[in-house]
Amino acid sequence: MTHTELEITAELVRELLRDQHPDLADRPLGLGARGWDNQLWRLGDDLAVRLPWATRTADALLRKEYAWLPALAPHLPLPVPVPQRFGEPSGRFPRPWIVTTWVPGTPADRAPATRAADAADSLAAFLTALHRPAPTGAPVGRDRGGPPADRAEQFAKMLASATEPGLVPDPGAVRAVWEDAAAAPDWAGPALWLHGDLHPANVLTADGALCGVIDFGDLCAGDPACDLAAAWILLPDGAADRFHDAYQPAPDAATLRRARGWAVLRALAGILIADAGVHGRPGGKPTWGPPARTALRRLTAAARR
C-alpha cells in the first residue's frame, strides 16, 4: 500500500503501538514530517515512529536501517536516528515500521548552515567516521555508490527536463561538469559505508551549525564520492575547500571529479522536485530548490575557470 491507499493518522499509530509496543502507547504523539518514503510521528520527547507511506520500496529501506544503523551510530560524531523497536506488518497496517530516537533540529533546506567553518568541520568529521570499509554482506545501493557514468541516461533525462522550462541557466556548463565526472577513473578502494542521500532535507541544523543527520534509507557500501558531493549541496559558499582539507583520508583528484558529478545529479533532482514537480509525488518541496540552484552555480562557476 502507498499513500493513495492508506491514510496514516495519530489514531492508527497509537493503535499499532498498543498492539506491539504497549509500553510506548500512552506517550504524547504528533506528526513530525511527511517525507519522500516515510511519515515520521514524534513520540514523546526522545522517540519517533517511522512508517512507510509513499513508495513501495520503503519497506526494505526501513528493515535495512533497523539491521545496520545501531552498530554504526555509536561511532558517528553527529546524532542520528537510532532504531529502537521494530513493528511487524499486521492486518491493521500491512507494512513494517520502526521506532527510532528523535534527533532535534531543523532540516537544512529550511534553515541552511551559515557557520561555514563549523559546518565544514562537522560534515568532514561525520563522513570521516562513517566512511569505513563495510563488511561482507553490507547492502548495495539502489543506484548509489557506483561510478557516475552508470547514471548517464538518468543525467541526460534530468538535464533535458530541467532545461526545457528554463530551470538551468547554462546547461552546457552543467554537462561539462558531468562529462568530466563520468570520465574520471573509478573508485579503486574498498567499498565504504555511505549515507547515500545527503541532501539538505536529510541534514539538521541549529544556530547555523550542523546538529544531526537523518534518513539512512539509502545506507549502502561503495564509492565515497557519492557522499562527498554534499560539500557543494550543504555547505555555505567558500566552505568546500575547508571540508576537503578536513576530511580524511584526503580525497584524490579523481574522487573529487566523481563527487562533482554526484553533486550535479543531486542538484538537478532538487530543482526538478521543487520547481517542476514529479507527477505530484509527496516529499518534493519548494525549499529543495534554492540549495540545488546554489550548488549548480558553484559547480558550473568552477568549471568555467
Rank of each mutant, 00 (worst) to 15 (best):
P133T: 09
V99Y: 06
V103L: 06
A120H: 10
P96R: 10
R132A: 14
S122T: 15
G105W: 01
T114H: 04
A116E: 11
T114N: 10
P133V: 08
S122I: 03
P96E: 07
P96N: 06
W102F: 15
P96K: 03
P96D: 09
P94A: 13
H131G: 11
A125I: 00
L123R: 08
D118A: 15
D109Y: 00
A125Q: 13
A108R: 03
A124L: 10
T114Q: 13
A117D: 15
P104H: 06
I98T: 13
R95F: 08
S122D: 15
A119D: 04
A117C: 02
A116Y: 12
W102Y: 14
L123T: 10
A134P: 03
R95K: 10
D121T: 14
A111T: 06
D118Y: 05
R95S: 05
A113M: 09
A129G: 12
T128W: 03
R132H: 14
D121A: 14
P104I: 02
A119W: 00
A108T: 09
A116G: 13
P96G: 09
A125K: 04
P112E: 04
S122K: 14
V99K: 10
P96W: 07
A134M: 08
A124E: 05
H131M: 08
W97S: 00
A120P: 13
T128L: 05
A113G: 14
L127F: 08
W97A: 00
W102T: 01
A120T: 12
S122Y: 06
V103Q: 03
L127S: 11
A116R: 13
P96H: 08
G105D: 01
R132W: 11
P94R: 05
L123F: 07
A113V: 12
R110I: 10
P96M: 10
L130I: 09
I98K: 06
R132F: 02
P112C: 04
A134T: 09
P94V: 12
A129W: 05
T106Q: 01
F126M: 10
G105Q: 09
F93V: 13
A113P: 10
A116L: 11
H131V: 07
G105H: 02
H131D: 09
T101Y: 08
W97H: 00
G105N: 05
L123E: 11
A117W: 01
V103G: 03
